Computed example of a mutant assay.
Amino acid sequence: MKITDFINTDIKPLTLKNTLKQAKDSFKKNEANHLAVIDTHLLGMLSKEDIHDLDLAKNIEDYQYLLDLFYVKNSYNWLEVLGLFAQNQTDLMPIVDDENQYKGCYLLEDLLNFIYETPFLTEPGNILIIEHNTTDYSMSKICQIVESNDGKLLGAFISESNPDTVQITLKIGPIAINPIIQSFRRYGYQIVSEHEEDKLMSNLKDRSDYLNRYLNI
């Protein structure tokens, strides 16, 4: 399934000649916090919050300065689209072609349903969160570490970042994960997530260290 399968053409865009009362009714009908406003092309997005205290009898063109221009194109992948949803704090994202002609929209709910169907979430496996210096980590090296331990990387994304460190969340196919954990440690990665296999190995090491100290008394 492709993200373009979720293009919505049922929600009709507004025009400058629509009144704010008509816009308010459309917001209520479509349960959206933004709606597209078009002329011969996309003019911008009208926010439901922006029209609360305005004269509903007036046309949108009287408040055209309130329009906020953001959009995606058919060629954008789902990560780019999701990023723009978050950046613009919207639940409806307009889609335009190369001539800025309005072609429909994506709904945030539909995009999340698309993500829920990706192998990252649907395939069985282990979630591993690792941490490394921001300037030193390498996605290619991360893949190499997983695959060198007969693991299958189903997905990876940066889940947290600051100027000094970065955390990467990995989804690894069902396999004994401890060899992968130990390999990451050898390459200087910190393991943020907790794993039963890792706890068991840590407990065995603690007991071994205790026994060695006892024998050396």
Rank of each mutant, 00 (worst) to 15 (best):
T135I: 14
A156P: 01
I115D: 03
I127S: 14
L121M: 10
L154V: 02
F120G: 05
N113I: 12
L153P: 05
T134H: 11
E109V: 12
L153R: 02
N133S: 14
Y116N: 12
I129G: 05
P163R: 07
N133M: 15
M139F: 11
I115C: 07
P124C: 03
A156Q: 06
M139G: 07
F114C: 04
E123T: 02
E109I: 11
I129E: 03
Q167W: 10
V146D: 04
E131C: 11
S140C: 09
D110P: 07
K141Y: 12
L112C: 00
V166G: 00
M139Q: 09
L154D: 00
I158C: 05
T135N: 13
S161V: 15
S148L: 10
Q167G: 11
H132C: 01
I130W: 00
Y116C: 09
N133K: 14
T122V: 01
K152E: 13
L111V: 06
N126R: 10
N149C: 14
I115A: 04
E147N: 05
L121K: 02
M139P: 08
H132F: 05
I158Q: 05
K152N: 13
I130A: 00
T134G: 10
K152Q: 13
N113W: 10
L154Q: 01
T165N: 14
F157E: 07
G151H: 03
E147D: 05
L108F: 08
V146Y: 01
S148D: 08
K141C: 08
K141W: 10
I158R: 05
I142D: 07
T135L: 12
S159L: 13
I145G: 01
L111A: 02
G155R: 04
E147R: 03
T165S: 14
Q144S: 08
P119C: 05
K141E: 12
L128I: 13
S161G: 12
E117K: 04
T118K: 06
Y116H: 15
K141R: 09
S138C: 07
T165K: 15
E147Q: 06
V166W: 00
L121W: 01
F114P: 04
D110F: 04
T165C: 15
F120W: 05
I168N: 04
N133G: 12
E131V: 10
L111R: 01
I115K: 05
Y137A: 02
S140N: 12
S159E: 13
N133F: 15
D110V: 09
F157P: 06
G155T: 03
L107C: 05
F114D: 02
S161I: 15
N149L: 12
